[in-house]
């Protein structure tokens, strides 16, 4: 049970492990849950709220986030490390839209974490989820958190506006734990596209200062990369607009300060986050059966 009083002083959060699924190798198949007969009346009513008809060719396909993300949650957690918080971020709805998938995923974590989901914010939802994990840590109720980002490719009605739609199903889990430095998340709302480059450059410069050990991970919404001397640059695939960048968090050289950024032109959010890697020895980074990469952050591609 999660029990809290008023917010108190807490800790920072460092990045410890990343696991992803659906980014490499063969595509993840559709879930059998997508064919359940209760879905059609629900989706019919849902689409009808905006006068839309269902796309018969899409019905029966898609993935459910509880099942899609369970392997990555298990990959970043270990039984002797209780988790206090799990936050699931998604943009495209779960193929099982009524389920509390975050609670299902929490059942795969040691420690019975408080769990909830953040959505209706496009790709910015993952940054908000990271920021909330940082806020729970900074206010004294979270020493270890799991951020889950999930996306699935089936949208069974026509889109009424521009929005990212993934080409396949994928999930990422990020394990964060207490550290001396706070995890910084900066969000700019209602930012026009022409202002993105300048604001992003300023935010990255403020986050990185004089550091020369920076890995910059950019989501598909960022066009021009900011100029950061000596920085290693990684890109998330546009095929996976919600999880692509997050899957690359641990692809860089070990031990570097991580900056991740993305822009969503549909809702106008520019998000930038800065994270320190865990200072634990490399030998402590991997969970059983999933070797670490040798320092800083353990990265695992969960095989299907």
């Amino acid at each position: 049970m999660f029990v809290t009083g008023p917010p108190t002083a807490g800790t920072g959060l460092a990045l410890r492990r990343v696991a992803h699924r659906g980014h490499t190798g063969p595509p993840i198949a559709d879930s059998s849950l997508a064919t359940h007969p209760t879905l059609r009346p629900y989706l019919t009513d849902l689409a009808a709220t905006r006068g839309l008809a269902l796309r018969a060719e899409v019905l029966g396909t898609g993935q459910a986030y509880a099942e899609l993300a369970a392997p990555v949650v298990e990959a970043v957690t270990s039984p002797d490390e209780p988790v206090d918080l799990l936050v699931l971020a998604f943009g495209v709805p779960d193929v099982q839209p009524g389920r509390n998938a975050a609670l299902r995923l929490a059942a795969h974590c040691p420690g019975r974490p408080l769990a909830f989901a953040v959505c209706d914010q496009g790709p910015a939802a993952a940054f908000t989820a990271l920021g909330l994990a940082a806020d729970y840590a900074a206010t004294g109720v979270c020493a270890r958190a799991v951020l889950v980002v999930a996306e699935q490719a089936a949208v069974p009605y026509p889109l009424t506006a521009q929005a990212p739609v993934p080409e396949r199903h994928a999930a990422v889990a990020v394990l964060l734990e207490s550290g001396p430095a706070p995890a910084h998340v900066r969000t700019h709302a209602d930012l026009p596209p022409e202002a993105v480059a300048a604001v992003l450059a300023a935010e990255v410069a403020e986050l990185t200062g004089e550091r020369d050990d920076v890995t910059l991970v950019l989501g598909p919404g960022v066009g021009t990369a900011p100029d950061v001397p000596g920085a290693e640059m990684l890109r998330g695939t546009p095929e996976l607009p919600y999880t692509g960048a997050w899957a690359r968090l641990a692809d860089g050289e070990p031990g570097r300060f991580l900056v991740i950024a993305d822009y969503d032109s549909a809702l106008g959010y520019l998000c930038v986050a800065g994270l320190e890697p865990s200072s634990r020895p490399a030998a402590d980074l991997a969970v059983a059966g999933s070797p670490g990469t040798g320092g800083g952050v353990a990265n695992m591609a969960v095989k299907d």
């Binding site: 953040v118 209706d120 910015a124």
Partner: peptide, 25 residues
């Protein structure tokens, strides 16, 4: 239906466009 976004429509109507809006569920 995705990407219809009630919380952002609300933010717009209330004139709170500089606020960060999201849903918790």
């Amino acid at each position: 239906p995705y990407p219809v976004n009630p919380v952002h429509e609300l933010r717009q109507r209330l004139g709170l466009t500089s606020a960060t809006a999201f849903t918790v569920t």
